[in-house]
């Protein structure tokens, strides 16, 4: 069996990597200007410097592709960390209101600084988003001590999300006219407008954080059996829980800072990955979710861009269409298994 499993896992990983490559290429070639694969190669090797195609690839499409992949991966891993923390497959940064919390603080920070004519750099945006994520997470943790029922916790999370969103809307309403367009686009969620400088920050944050999460695979697998067993196996519960919360907050903060709130990826992708790989072992699910999230967001971004081109849809419009049914499936699946026992 372990042999059979190894084959399945290798196969799944290979498929995910191939899909990542396919969608990345599609992202690069498609758009209002058609660009051939050979032109992309030329752009990469710098042979066509100065041409329009080069500029489009290097300054618009490449950063967008890389950020969609990295942020999609970050969201999925963030979702998986939260699911482990709450021992609930339908927990995620979006439904628990963590993304909305980040959105609120980023919007406030942007407005305050824009008024005084300063543009926030990437790090400051992530910082603001991180504070918002932590505030929302803190609220959820306080509530989780009071409500034992997971469904209630999710509802509380959704409500926190609504509160944060309405405060954000309120702030946007009173913002300067010039800022509104920018802010409005961002607050709907989109991978557009991310430049290469941003990409460097995104890559640094997500890769370090996801690696740190991967290094937590062992205690996470113990934690899956429940607190008591984890403790007996020698897991330092306090430190472990804190690490989970911090890492998932950093990841969702990073996503929100650059792409705004992106819905349901955090729940849908880990669920699909667990189903495809037939395991919930963190050591497999974390890397697989990262790659799976990249595939999912690349595909969704491609659809968002191309479906009604040249009109671009917000990314959440597409992720919700594909993600929400998976979330429902995950929920039903959990019910069924409960009854099955």
């Amino acid at each position: 069996m372990s042999q059979k499993r190894a084959v399945r896992w290798t196969l799944c990983f290979s498929i995910l990597l191939i899909l990542t490559a396919v969608f990345a290429v599609l992202e690069l070639v498609s758009g209002s200007t058609n660009i051939t694969i050979s032109e992309i190669f030329k752009a990469f090797t710098g042979k066509n410097a100065g041409s329009a195609a080069n500029t489009i690839v290097m300054e618009i499409r490449l950063p967008r592709t890389i950020s969609a992949a990295l942020l999609g991966g970050a969201l999925s891993v963030s979702g998986f960390l939260l699911q482990s923390f709450f021992n609930n497959p339908i927990a995620g940064p979006y439904v628990l209101g963590i993304s909305s919390g980040a959105k609120l603080t980023v919007a406030l920070a942007m407005m305050l600084t824009m008024q005084s004519g300063i543009f926030l750099n990437s790090a400051a945006m992530v910082g603001a988003a991180f504070i918002g994520s932590l505030l929302s997470t803190g609220a959820i943790l306080l509530l989780s001590g009071k409500v034992k029922n997971m469904a209630q916790l999710i509802i509380a999370g959704v409500m926190i999300g609504y509160i944060c969103s309405s405060v954000t809307e309120l702030a946007v309403t009173f913002a300067d006219d010039a800022n509104i367009v920018n802010l409005h686009n961002w607050s709907m969620g989109s991978f557009s407008g991310i430049n290469m400088e941003n990409v460097k920050v995104i890559a640094l944050i997500t890769i370090i954080t996801v690696f740190a999460a991967f290094m937590l695979s062992k205690p996470m697998s113990a934690y899956q059996l429940g607190e008591s067993y984890a403790k007996n196996m020698g897991v330092n519960l306090k430190a472990f829980r804190l690490a989970l919360i911090l890492l998932s907050s950093i990841l969702s903060a990073c996503v929100t800072a650059f792409a705004g709130p992106v819905s349901f990826v955090g729940i849908a992708v880990p669920h699909l990955v667990k189903t495809a790989f037939g395991t919930a072992k963190p050591i497999i699910v974390i890397p697989a979710s990262f790659i799976g999230g990249a595939v999912f967001c690349l595909a969704c971004d491609l659809i968002a861009r191309m479906l009604f081109a040249p009109v671009e849809l917000s990314i959440s419009t597409i992720t919700a269409v594909f993600g929400a049914p998976v979330v429902i499936a995950a929920m039903l699946n959990r019910r069924e298994q409960k009854r099955g026992v």
Partner: peptide
Amino acid sequence: VCLTDRITAEKMTCEDIVST
């Protein structure tokens, strides 16, 4: 320890559980 807590872990085989 061996407790009566219900194991809710998803997609874990019995061998996975014993391996922990």
